[in-house]
Design a binder for these strands. Structure first.
Lengths: 221, 221
DNA sequence: ACAAAAGTGTTGACAATACACCCATGT
DNA sequence: ACATGGGTGTATTGTCAACACTTTTGT
């Protein structure tokens, strides 16, 4: 017999920086310390449903990109007994969300990757694992789109990749590469109120993506 | 409070076919039916250790390639109560192993992928998920080597990829591609007792692989 | 001689990379 | 005028894919 919890690593992207949503514990000895949002699985609920429910409670959103990462279960990861946790990995479009603090969290805050504090239990390990997962995932499928607004420019997309992968890219080559994939739909719309030439906006086309994945394709940068 | 188990999908490769090791249940109502080898996690043991221990008990080997897959936890996956299972994924060099039946298994047998019967609980789902994982994994890192003997020919390696990915490849192009990666060490040895021109044997070089992964490289076929 | 796989070579199409350059817009 | 990003073009080099061909060995 063991206890099982869920912990979620929620990524967002804002002004060129990759961020993670953390919550401050509202109860117990760990009060005031930061950690990953999480909770328990209910008796008649699948693990995926539990993760969706927890995320909806915290962010008010229910159509989030969500993937199970893996289970973390070092015997001493939790001081008060054996607790195995199942890590989840979420990508959200930050501007859609009104983050509200959940029931056991007195506060929730976005942290830039470089500014992440020491977290409770093994949450830093889970976070590190997620980051690595994100870097791999983003090279295999266009999951990165889940971090951007519906409409975005090619430059914004490139900056997202640069930030996640920690590399610099060539504007012109990135443009050719991504457009050749035919995954983006060019809109009849341009940026507004920018202090430079306005760029065309693009949308991600889910249907084309699904067609391509059936055939098998790769998304290397 | 929940119960947690571990279930392992063990892949082997024999005479050009991909195979999975299944065990026959020795107890209870399900006696005689086939399933994935598995067991319980001990109180003071990490999840990975538990998986290694279970595999060692079953196969007599303790240096197996092993990866956690993910947790499976549909509320009704197990009929007698809520049990979450953590799936593991193992690759073994078949010729090294003397498979011995474990304590709760009266028999263990290798099944070709195409011949897998209906398994207990959700084990077919876990197996399907593993297969998909293997197909992805093999494209990202040279994990396939764990299924081959220490010394192998380029043709055997190609046949392994063809079988796993379900595609046909060009001998000449495969050869160039794999040799260009510099992951293989050419040995001063040749095949024996084959009814055709004997091929050079190669070895996989773990150190070169580690150097390359740090730099980031990809392994597309 | 034949079968079966080993192993080499060639070619054309396509993609990656680096870099130069002009365009539009707000300050 | 200048900074910032938008957007186009090009030349070089590398890789992929198809396939034709020669070599070696056992039956």
């Amino acid at each position: 017999m063991n206890s099982i919890t869920i912990d979620c690593v929620i990524f967002g992207f804002d002004k060129g920086s990759l961020e993670v949503l953390l919550v401050q514990h509202g109860e117990g000895i760990r009060k005031g310390e930061w950690g990953l949002p999480g909770g328990w699985i209910r008796e008649r609920e699948s693990i995926d449903n539990a993760a969706h429910r927890l995320l909806a409670d915290l962010t008010g959103l229910d159509s989030i990109y969500l993937e199970q990462l893996k289970a973390f279960g070092e015997p001493d990861r939790f001081p008060l007994g054996r607790v195995i946790t199942i890590g989840y990995f979420a990508l959200i479009k930050k501007e859609d969300y009104d983050v509200r603090a959940g029931f056991t969290a007195s506060d929730a805050k976005w942290y830039k990757i470089a500014d992440i504090p020491k977290l409770i239990y093994d949450h830093n390990d889970i976070l590190d694992y997620s980051l690595e997962h994100l870097r791999n995932r983003v090279r295999q499928a266009p999951v990165g789109f889940n971090l951007l607004p519906e409409k975005f420019t090619l430059f914004e997309l490139m900056k997202l990749y640069e930030e996640i992968l920690g590399i610099e890219m060539d504007k012109s080559n990135f443009r050719r590469k991504i457009l050749r994939m035919k995954l983006l739909v060019e809109l009849d719309e341009k940026q507004k109120d920018v202090s430079h030439r306005a760029a065309k906006l693009y949308e991600f086309d889910q249907k084309i993506y699904e067609k391509l994945t059936k055939k098998g394709f790769n998304f290397e940068f």
